[in-house]
Amino acid sequence: MSDIPVVSNAWAERLQHRQQSQVPELWDMLDVVNDPEVPALSLWDLGVLCDLHKDEYGKVTVWITPTYSGCPAISTMQDDIESELARAGFNDYEVKTKLAPAWTTDWLSPEGRRKLREYGIAPPTQSACGNASGLTPEFGVECPHCSSSDTKRLSEFGSTACKALFQCNDCHEAFDYFKQI
């Protein structure tokens, strides 16, 4: 099944911000830094990488935002970005965390959604497909293994804060669903 090529406004804004950046090479460089919990996704794909900036003295500042309030991976993400900057020869850099605006799954890149599915995690349904509240549906999240929509929710909360647990009634595999938030 192919995706309907519609992107969220939030994503379009992120992409535009990146494209207008004065330092595109830095964004490209950090594309290799992946999420420690879902290593199929880069921090950019996940939407955690918010902004970066290089000042006139060459100091690099990177802003990231946590997915959930209690995201335990945030300090690992910070370390991973710092090592990548160090590896590329920068010696003056800082990684800052910012809370606002709050992270949303609308910031996931279309590429990230595809990679999630390939990795065996169902990407968040967009509101048309889920229920009106935007919370995790009880049935019908597309199985990332066999693409069946005959699936059921086993648990509202899965192995990490950002996921819920589903099972497919066709291929019987259990799979993670990346919750919409």
């Binding site: 605006p101 919370l135 509202e156 919750k179």
Partner: peptide, 17 residues
């Protein structure tokens, strides 16, 4: 306000459960 913006979304999941 920023803390609330994050927490309010999580709380909807808590309440549903």
């Amino acid at each position: 306000a920023a803390v609330a913006a994050k927490a309010v979304k999580e709380t909807r999941y808590h309440l549903r459960r």
